[in-house]
Amino acid sequence: MPARTSLATAMRTITATTIITGMTTTTTEAAGEADRRAALLRLLTWLSPAFPVGAFGWSHGLEAAIAEGRLSDAASVRGWIAALVTRGSGWNDLVLFAVAYRCAAARDEAGLAEVGELALALAGSAERRAETAALGEAFAAAAAPWSETDAAPYPLAVARVAAANGVLLGDALVAFAHAFAANLLSVAVRLVPLGQSQAVAVSRELEPALLAAARQAEAASLDDLGQAALWSDIAAMRHETLQPRLFRS
């Protein structure tokens, strides 16, 4: 009889432990899902056109390219933006973002300083340098409720806040690439001009390029920096003397 009692007690203990463990696992998974959703919400806020960084005032040289007739339809706009993200200034920004994120996560201030210097040095014109500096300063100020951070070139400013708030690097890179492309597309809507339906189609067609660039940048190092979008760099330089103009770069 005592043996039967011990066996019954043991079975009840095992059952209770299983239930408690299952509840703990479920609670942990729910907490993780809540954290991921909170991170997504933050990304949507930080990289929304409504976030007060003033990105709408900069065209990244696109205004000059349009004025020169290099961009005149949806296909040329799509190709231009895709080239920037995969082998131009957009690609460099994604690499700088990824390296800065890892430095921030490791609290490597010396590494962040090095990346910041590179970000400014890689700006191929005075206006592009002003663009990344102004956007970064505005972002750091606007993101203060989430994380106090010093002003830095734009990709670094976003990366530091993302790392401080538990946003996954891969997700942050996809969001940053999308915001970069969306801002340039909004310039084209106003200046080419493109219709809204055409712009939406271009946005859809850019998805593979954006996802591929973000995926590659996630594992990139400073050795992967480099670009070959020369017409974009030239357009950015020519914009400095363009008259009349609507944008600051």
Rank of each mutant, 00 (worst) to 15 (best):
53 V>C: 13
110 A>E: 14
74 A>I: 04
93 D>F: 08
92 N>W: 05
38 A>Y: 01
92 N>C: 06
68 E>Y: 07
36 R>S: 13
91 W>N: 02
81 I>K: 01
110 A>F: 11
69 G>W: 10
49 P>H: 14
79 G>N: 10
94 L>A: 07
40 L>S: 06
42 R>W: 05
53 V>S: 12
101 Y>R: 06
54 G>D: 05
112 L>K: 05
117 E>T: 11
51 F>E: 08
60 H>D: 12
121 A>S: 08
33 E>Q: 15
59 S>K: 08
86 T>N: 10
36 R>Y: 04
75 A>Q: 08
50 A>V: 10
62 L>C: 03
51 F>W: 03
89 S>A: 12
121 A>E: 09
38 A>H: 04
38 A>E: 02
47 L>C: 07
119 A>C: 09
112 L>S: 03
86 T>Y: 06
37 R>F: 08
81 I>T: 00
57 G>I: 04
60 H>Q: 13
121 A>R: 15
59 S>A: 12
50 A>I: 09
75 A>D: 11
40 L>M: 07
72 S>N: 02
116 G>R: 09
61 G>N: 06
103 C>T: 03
109 E>Y: 14
95 V>K: 01
67 A>T: 02
93 D>C: 15
101 Y>L: 05
78 R>H: 04
41 L>W: 06
107 R>A: 15
56 F>V: 10
36 R>A: 10
65 A>L: 15
78 R>L: 10
81 I>A: 00
65 A>Q: 14
66 I>T: 05
68 E>L: 12
40 L>P: 00
38 A>M: 00
100 A>Q: 00
53 V>F: 11
41 L>D: 12
45 T>A: 15
